[in-house]
Design a binder for these strands. Structure first.
Lengths: 198, 198
DNA sequence: AATAAAATGGACCGGCAAGTCCAGAACCGG
DNA sequence: CCGGTTCTGGACTTGCCGGTCCATTTTATT
């Protein structure tokens, strides 16, 4: 059971934790920080997240994962023209440019992934959704004849996802966004001039 | 000052810490673990790393960073033919396939990077070295006319580095190596059929 | 209004791990 | 062999933080 008030509190805790992570990282995150920021008490955290810190972090990670996909919409779901691809590319760059060095999801995954199978599953699901959307876009372009039919759509989508991930990782560790742009543009260039099956 | 014995101990501590991280990750790493594994005492760790845990982790990160470049040699330093590029590509895939889910350097960077400027500098330096080697390879191929001269060598190198990073991140979080392969092959395909400036 | 269920506050516990300290052993140069 | 330096062992301190517990208040239901 969960009353409206309870649901609100639960949400507040998740969002507070996410904000705290964005500011100070995971390593230094304590439940007391979350408690203070969200104006709750220790018992509330454990009331809504019986599994303690780990369960809370997992909830935060799930929220952030949804956000990642959402931030790419509506472009990601409608990759039917070259303009749409370009818009998507710009949206991705803009999103991570704005996020800068602080990638809460990345931290959550590297921190949790190792220990928790649930976190691994969450990551896998996110990447699958992402790649599937891109693959659909590639396939669609192949149908309309704008992309060479011999191209492996799934493999191309995989390369695109990897390009974004790599660019983001480098952005996170150096603050430079040029790699993300270069990686995306290179992958898209191949798509545009797809004279090859890879 | 540092006697031969002292230098050996210092090295033993770094290597022990690296091994410990590879097995159990950073989150759960304690100085006591390192102490036990390396048959040293607490005071020794602080003797050789007055800055405590952080300084030790930084030393480990530096070692791992050197290793990353070294593992790509001799291929990385001699990208003069398509065969050499292919060999390099295979070496990278093999190296990370073997490493699997455990990327000590990645963890060190995400863990330290946020707090320590020194760690950020270390990452930047690694990426720069890496990218410079690739750029030299691309430039060389342009000189021999095997790659379109209009291609921006530096940007292409940046895309390659990002592709590898992305593939590795995905390998780390899902255990699948297909993304690394796809990202690398796609980037190399563009290089081979460089009919475009990106 | 009554009663059960859910929500809240916060004191408290226990363990763990980073870092300190000092005494003593091993090593070096002269 | 001797003074100084470096190296080593391990007990101890200290603070922090996840998690527990229970009393109290608020909310939902009939």
């Amino acid at each position: 059971m969960l009353t409206a008030k309870g649901a609100a509190t639960r949400r507040r805790i998740i969002e507070g934790a996410a904000a705290e992570i964005r500011e100070n990282g995971i390593a230094g995150l304590t439940l007391d920080d979350v408690r203070a920021r969200t104006a709750t008490s220790k018992s509330q955290i454990f009331h809504y997240f019986p599994g303690g810190k780990e369960e809370l972090l997992l909830a935060v990670a799930a929220r952030e994962a949804d956000q990642v996909i959402e931030d790419q919409q509506p472009h990601l779901g409608d990759l039917t023209t070259w303009q749409a691809w370009q818009d998507w590319r710009d949206a991705v760059v803009r999103r991570y440019e704005q996020q800068g060095v602080d990638c809460p999801l990345g931290m959550l995954i590297t921190e949790l992934g190792r220990t928790t199978p649930a976190a691994q599953a969450l990551t896998a699901r996110l990447l699958d959704r992402w790649q599937a959307a891109l693959r659909a876009g590639v396939a669609r372009m192949q149908e309309t004849g704008e992309v060479d039919r011999r191209l492996d759509a799934d493999r191309t989508a995989a390369a695109l996802v990897a390009a974004v991930q790599g660019g983001v990782v480098i952005l996170m560790s150096t603050g430079r966004i040029t790699h993300l742009e270069a990686a995306l543009d290179t992958s898209l260039a191949l798509l545009r001039h797809s004279a090859v099956q890879v």
